[in-house]
Protein backbone atom coordinates (compact mmCIF):
# COMPACT_ATOMS: atom_id res chain seq x y z
CA UNK A 1 0.00 0.00 0.00
CA UNK A 2 2.65 2.50 0.99
CA UNK A 3 4.94 1.59 -1.89
CA UNK A 4 1.98 1.89 -4.25
CA UNK A 5 1.44 5.42 -2.98
CA UNK A 6 5.10 6.23 -3.43
CA UNK A 7 5.09 4.79 -6.94
CA UNK A 8 2.01 6.87 -7.71
CA UNK A 9 3.65 10.02 -6.37
CA UNK A 10 6.61 9.37 -8.64
CA UNK A 11 4.64 8.26 -11.66
CA UNK A 12 2.05 11.02 -11.83
CA UNK A 13 4.39 14.01 -12.02
CA UNK A 14 6.76 12.09 -14.24
CA UNK A 15 3.90 11.48 -16.64
CA UNK A 16 2.80 15.11 -16.32
CA UNK A 17 6.23 16.57 -16.98
CA UNK A 18 6.84 14.12 -19.80
CA UNK A 19 3.51 15.08 -21.34
CA UNK A 20 4.23 18.79 -21.07
CA UNK A 21 7.70 18.49 -22.49
CA UNK A 22 6.58 16.09 -25.21
CA UNK A 23 4.10 18.68 -26.39
CA UNK A 24 7.17 20.65 -27.48
CA UNK A 25 7.92 18.10 -30.14
CA UNK A 26 4.31 17.91 -31.20
CA UNK A 27 2.56 20.29 -33.55
CA UNK A 28 3.58 23.90 -33.22
CA UNK A 29 1.64 26.19 -30.89
CA UNK A 30 1.48 28.88 -33.44
CA UNK A 31 -0.44 28.23 -36.58
CA UNK A 32 1.61 28.59 -38.60
CA UNK A 33 5.12 28.72 -37.25
CA UNK A 34 6.12 29.37 -40.83
CA UNK A 35 6.82 33.08 -40.71
CA UNK A 36 9.70 32.46 -38.39
CA UNK A 37 10.03 28.70 -38.06
CA UNK A 38 9.09 25.50 -39.82
CA UNK A 39 5.95 23.47 -39.57
CA UNK A 40 4.39 20.52 -41.29
CA UNK A 41 0.99 20.98 -42.80
CA UNK A 42 -1.81 19.02 -41.17
CA UNK A 43 -2.67 17.25 -44.40
CA UNK A 44 0.10 14.74 -45.00
CA UNK A 45 -1.57 12.53 -47.56
CA UNK A 46 1.42 10.91 -49.27
CA UNK A 47 0.85 7.34 -50.41
CA UNK A 48 -2.91 7.61 -50.42
CA UNK A 49 -5.06 6.25 -53.20
CA UNK A 50 -5.87 8.32 -56.27
CA UNK A 51 -8.67 10.78 -55.88
CA UNK A 52 -12.07 9.87 -57.15
CA UNK A 53 -12.17 10.48 -60.91
CA UNK A 54 -14.23 13.45 -61.84
CA UNK A 55 -13.89 15.06 -58.44
CA UNK A 56 -12.59 18.61 -58.39
CA UNK A 57 -9.04 19.39 -57.28
CA UNK A 58 -10.61 21.20 -54.38
CA UNK A 59 -12.15 18.04 -53.06
CA UNK A 60 -8.97 16.09 -53.60
CA UNK A 61 -6.42 18.52 -52.23
CA UNK A 62 -6.82 17.27 -48.69
CA UNK A 63 -7.02 13.59 -49.63
CA UNK A 64 -4.34 13.41 -52.26
CA UNK A 65 -2.39 16.64 -52.56
CA UNK A 66 -0.06 15.34 -55.25
CA UNK A 67 -2.85 14.34 -57.58
CA UNK A 68 -4.58 17.65 -56.91
CA UNK A 69 -1.37 19.49 -57.75
CA UNK A 70 -0.98 17.56 -61.00
CA UNK A 71 -4.62 18.11 -61.86
CA UNK A 72 -4.04 21.86 -61.61
CA UNK A 73 -1.60 21.70 -64.50
CA UNK A 74 -3.26 18.96 -66.50
CA UNK A 75 -4.05 19.75 -70.14
CA UNK A 76 -5.98 21.13 -71.83
CA UNK A 77 -4.88 24.65 -70.88
CA UNK A 78 -6.73 26.79 -73.39
CA UNK A 79 -4.28 28.89 -75.38
CA UNK A 80 -1.20 26.99 -74.25
CA UNK A 81 0.55 23.81 -75.18
CA UNK A 82 2.66 21.80 -72.77
CA UNK A 83 6.29 21.11 -73.64
CA UNK A 84 6.34 18.17 -71.24
CA UNK A 85 4.32 16.81 -68.37
CA UNK A 86 4.72 18.68 -65.07
CA UNK A 87 7.77 17.68 -63.02
CA UNK A 88 7.21 17.21 -59.30
CA UNK A 89 9.83 18.14 -56.70
CA UNK A 90 9.69 17.28 -53.01
CA UNK A 91 11.62 18.96 -50.18
CA UNK A 92 14.90 17.25 -51.14
CA UNK A 93 14.40 17.73 -54.84
CA UNK A 94 13.69 21.40 -54.41
CA UNK A 95 17.41 22.08 -53.98
CA UNK A 96 17.98 20.71 -57.50
CA UNK A 97 15.46 23.12 -58.86
CA UNK A 98 15.99 26.36 -56.96
CA UNK A 99 19.14 25.50 -55.02
CA UNK A 100 19.91 28.01 -52.27
CA UNK A 101 16.42 29.44 -52.23
CA UNK A 102 15.01 26.10 -51.08
CA UNK A 103 15.42 26.53 -47.30
CA UNK A 104 13.33 29.67 -47.40
CA UNK A 105 10.48 27.62 -48.85
CA UNK A 106 11.02 24.59 -46.64
CA UNK A 107 11.05 26.73 -43.50
CA UNK A 108 7.63 27.95 -44.52
CA UNK A 109 6.15 24.51 -44.82
CA UNK A 110 6.86 23.77 -48.49
CA UNK A 111 5.39 20.43 -49.50
CA UNK A 112 5.76 19.95 -53.21
CA UNK A 113 6.50 21.86 -56.38
CA UNK A 114 5.04 21.22 -59.81
CA UNK A 115 7.14 22.82 -62.54
CA UNK A 116 5.88 23.13 -66.07
CA UNK A 117 7.13 24.61 -69.32
CA UNK A 118 4.60 25.81 -71.85
CA UNK A 119 4.25 27.51 -75.18
CA UNK A 120 1.63 29.99 -76.18
CA UNK A 121 -0.19 29.39 -79.42
CA UNK A 122 1.86 32.27 -80.81
CA UNK A 123 5.03 30.39 -79.93
CA UNK A 124 6.16 32.37 -76.86
CA UNK A 125 7.79 30.29 -74.17
CA UNK A 126 7.01 30.46 -70.50
CA UNK A 127 7.36 28.47 -67.26
CA UNK A 128 4.89 27.89 -64.44
CA UNK A 129 6.04 26.88 -60.96
CA UNK A 130 3.24 25.93 -58.60
CA UNK A 131 4.39 25.49 -55.00
CA UNK A 132 2.05 23.50 -52.77
CA UNK A 133 2.69 25.07 -49.36
CA UNK A 134 0.29 22.78 -47.52
CA UNK A 135 -1.86 25.47 -45.95
CA UNK A 136 -2.92 28.99 -46.90
CA UNK A 137 -0.88 30.60 -44.13
CA UNK A 138 2.31 29.15 -45.55
CA UNK A 139 1.51 30.29 -49.08
CA UNK A 140 0.80 33.74 -47.71
CA UNK A 141 4.04 33.64 -45.74
CA UNK A 142 6.24 32.88 -48.74
CA UNK A 143 4.30 35.32 -50.88
CA UNK A 144 4.88 38.09 -48.35
CA UNK A 145 8.51 37.13 -47.92
CA UNK A 146 9.33 37.18 -51.61
CA UNK A 147 7.31 40.18 -52.63
CA UNK A 148 9.56 43.10 -53.57
CA UNK A 149 8.64 46.28 -51.70
CA UNK A 150 7.82 48.15 -54.88
CA UNK A 151 5.89 45.34 -56.55
CA UNK A 152 3.07 46.31 -58.84
CA UNK A 153 -0.11 44.88 -57.37
CA UNK A 154 -2.16 42.55 -59.55
CA UNK A 155 -5.66 41.36 -58.79
CA UNK A 156 -5.04 37.66 -59.17
CA UNK A 157 -5.70 34.77 -56.81
CA UNK A 158 -5.82 35.87 -53.17
CA UNK A 159 -3.07 38.39 -53.89
CA UNK A 160 -0.59 38.88 -56.69
CA UNK A 161 1.98 41.16 -58.24
CA UNK A 162 3.53 41.69 -61.58
CA UNK A 163 7.03 42.53 -62.69
CA UNK A 164 9.04 42.40 -65.90
CA UNK A 165 8.50 38.98 -67.51
CA UNK A 166 7.02 37.67 -64.26
CA UNK A 167 3.69 37.23 -62.55
CA UNK A 168 3.46 35.93 -58.98
CA UNK A 169 0.39 35.15 -56.94
CA UNK A 170 -0.98 32.84 -54.30
CA UNK A 171 -4.36 31.30 -53.91
CA UNK A 172 -5.23 29.09 -50.97
CA UNK A 173 -2.33 26.74 -50.31
CA UNK A 174 -0.69 27.33 -53.69
CA UNK A 175 2.06 29.84 -54.40
CA UNK A 176 2.53 30.36 -58.11
CA UNK A 177 5.39 31.98 -60.01
CA UNK A 178 4.99 32.44 -63.75
CA UNK A 179 7.95 33.47 -65.88
CA UNK A 180 8.01 34.47 -69.54
CA UNK A 181 11.15 33.82 -71.57
CA UNK A 182 10.42 36.35 -74.26
CA UNK A 183 8.47 39.55 -74.54
CA UNK A 184 5.91 37.80 -76.73
CA UNK A 185 4.88 35.50 -73.94
CA UNK A 186 4.74 38.24 -71.32
CA UNK A 187 1.24 39.28 -72.30
CA UNK A 188 0.04 35.72 -71.83
CA UNK A 189 1.28 35.50 -68.23
CA UNK A 190 -1.79 37.03 -66.69
CA UNK A 191 -4.07 34.82 -68.83
CA UNK A 192 -2.22 31.75 -67.64
CA UNK A 193 -2.39 33.00 -64.07
CA UNK A 194 -6.15 33.46 -64.27
CA UNK A 195 -6.55 30.04 -65.83
CA UNK A 196 -4.58 28.38 -63.03
CA UNK A 197 -6.26 30.40 -60.31
CA UNK A 198 -9.65 29.38 -61.64
CA UNK A 199 -8.70 25.75 -61.13
CA UNK A 200 -7.62 26.28 -57.54
CA UNK A 201 -10.00 25.66 -54.68
Amino acid sequence: MRSTLFALLVAVPTALVTFLVARGTGPCRVDPCSPLGATTPPTAGAGRAEGTPGATPAANAAKDPDAALKALLAPPLAGFTLKAEAALYDQKGLFDYIDGAAPVFIERGFRKLAALELKTTAGGELAADVYDMGITENALAIFTFEKPPAAQVLALGDAGHQGRLAVVFYRGRYYVKLTAFDAGAEAALVDLGRLLASRMP
Binding site: G24, T25, C28
Partner: peptide
Protein backbone atom coordinates in the same frame (compact mmCIF):
# COMPACT_ATOMS: atom_id res chain seq x y z
CA UNK B 1 9.76 32.35 -31.28
CA UNK B 2 12.79 30.18 -32.01
CA UNK B 3 12.22 27.54 -29.38
CA UNK B 4 8.57 27.58 -28.50
CA UNK B 5 7.40 24.97 -31.02
CA UNK B 6 4.70 23.06 -29.15
CA UNK B 7 5.63 23.76 -25.52
CA UNK B 8 2.72 24.76 -23.29
CA UNK B 9 4.82 27.58 -21.86
CA UNK B 10 1.99 29.15 -19.86
CA UNK B 11 1.15 25.86 -18.14
Amino acid sequence: ISFISGYPVEW
